[in-house]
Amino acid sequence: MKKYKITVYDEKTGEKHTIEIEMSEEELEELAKKLAEKHNVKVRIEKV
């Protein structure tokens, strides 16, 4: 498992949230996809 920083940005409201999380790359990609689809936000992932 690796550490990642996830930034979620909502273009409508301008809200931006960043968290650090430790998980596998596959789980992370699935999480990012679900966030983007369900909440209509942009998701950026960076390795820490």
Rank of each mutant, 00 (worst) to 15 (best):
M1W: 08
M1D: 06
M1C: 07
M1P: 11
M1E: 07
M1G: 07
M1Y: 09
M1K: 13
K2D: 15
K2A: 15
K2M: 15
K2Y: 15
K2L: 14
K2C: 15
K2V: 14
K2N: 15
K2E: 15
K3W: 15
K3S: 04
K3N: 10
K3G: 03
K3V: 08
Y4C: 02
Y4G: 00
Y4F: 06
Y4D: 00
Y4Q: 00
K5A: 04
K5M: 07
K5R: 15
K5D: 01
I6F: 01
I6Q: 00
I6S: 00
I6K: 00
I6V: 10
I6G: 00
T7E: 05
T7P: 00
T7R: 01
T7I: 08
T7K: 02
V8W: 15
V8M: 15
V8A: 03
V8T: 11
V8Y: 12
V8I: 14
Y9F: 08
Y9R: 04
Y9V: 05
Y9W: 13
Y9A: 02
Y9E: 13
Y9P: 00
Y9K: 03
Y9G: 01
D10W: 13
D10R: 01
D10C: 10
D10M: 07
E11I: 14
E11K: 12
E11C: 15
E11G: 06
E11T: 14
E11S: 09
K12S: 12
K12M: 12
K12R: 11
K12P: 03
T13L: 05
T13C: 09
T13P: 01
T13S: 09
T13V: 02
T13K: 05
T13I: 02
G14P: 00
G14W: 06
G14D: 05
G14T: 03
G14F: 06
G14H: 07
E15A: 12
E15G: 09
E15M: 11
E15C: 08
E15Y: 13
K16V: 15
K16Q: 13
H17W: 15
H17V: 09
H17F: 15
H17Y: 14
H17C: 14
H17M: 12
H17E: 12
H17S: 10
T18Q: 05
T18G: 03
T18R: 03
T18H: 05
I19W: 15
I19E: 06
I19D: 04
I19P: 00
I19H: 06
I19A: 06
I19G: 02
I19T: 07
E20V: 14
E20F: 14
E20D: 05
E20Q: 10
E20N: 11
E20I: 14
I21T: 06
I21A: 12
I21M: 12
I21Y: 04
I21G: 08
I21F: 07
I21C: 13
I21H: 03
I21V: 14
E22R: 06
E22T: 09
E22F: 12
E22A: 06
E22K: 04
M23S: 08
M23W: 03
M23V: 10
M23F: 03
M23E: 01
M23R: 01
M23I: 12
M23C: 15
M23G: 07
M23T: 09
S24W: 11
S24P: 07
E25P: 06
E25W: 10
E25K: 06
E25Q: 09
E25V: 08
E25H: 07
E25L: 09
E26N: 11
E26I: 11
E26P: 11
E26A: 10
E26R: 09
E26Q: 10
E26D: 13
E26C: 09
E26V: 09
E26T: 12
E26G: 11
E27N: 06
E27M: 07
E27C: 05
E27D: 12
E27W: 03
E27A: 10
L28C: 09
L28G: 02
L28F: 03
L28P: 00
E29I: 11
E29P: 05
E29N: 10
E29M: 11
E29V: 12
E29K: 14
E29T: 10
E29W: 13
E29Y: 15
E30M: 11
E30C: 05
E30F: 08
E30R: 11
E30T: 10
E30S: 09
L31G: 00
L31A: 03
L31Q: 01
L31W: 10
L31E: 01
L31I: 06
A32V: 14
A32Y: 08
A32S: 07
A32L: 12
A32M: 11
K33C: 11
K33S: 08
K33A: 09
K33W: 04
K33P: 01
K34I: 08
K34E: 08
K34C: 07
K34S: 09
K34Q: 09
K34F: 09
L35M: 05
L35N: 00
L35T: 02
L35F: 08
L35V: 03
L35E: 01
L35C: 10
L35P: 00
L35I: 05
A36I: 10
A36Y: 09
A36N: 08
A36W: 09
A36L: 10
A36D: 04
A36M: 13
A36E: 09
E37S: 11
E37V: 05
E37G: 10
K38M: 13
K38N: 13
K38W: 08
K38T: 09
K38P: 07
K38D: 11
K38S: 08
H39D: 12
H39P: 14
H39F: 06
H39I: 07
H39Q: 08
H39R: 04
H39L: 09
N40G: 15
N40R: 03
N40P: 02
N40V: 02
N40W: 11
V41N: 12
V41G: 14
V41C: 12
V41K: 05
V41L: 13
V41Q: 04
V41D: 05
K42L: 13
K42G: 04
K42R: 12
K42V: 15
K42Y: 05
V43A: 01
V43I: 11
V43T: 01
V43C: 03
V43G: 01
V43F: 04
V43Y: 03
V43D: 01
R44L: 15
R44N: 12
R44F: 15
R44T: 15
R44Y: 14
R44Q: 14
R44M: 13
R44E: 15
I45H: 00
I45W: 06
I45A: 01
I45N: 00
E46G: 00
E46Y: 02
E46K: 02
E46T: 04
E46M: 02
E46R: 01
E46I: 03
E46W: 02
E46H: 04
K47G: 11
K47H: 14
K47M: 15
K47P: 14
K47C: 15
K47N: 12
K47R: 07
K47E: 15
V48N: 02
V48L: 11
V48I: 12
V48E: 05
V48S: 03
V48W: 03
V48R: 02
V48D: 04
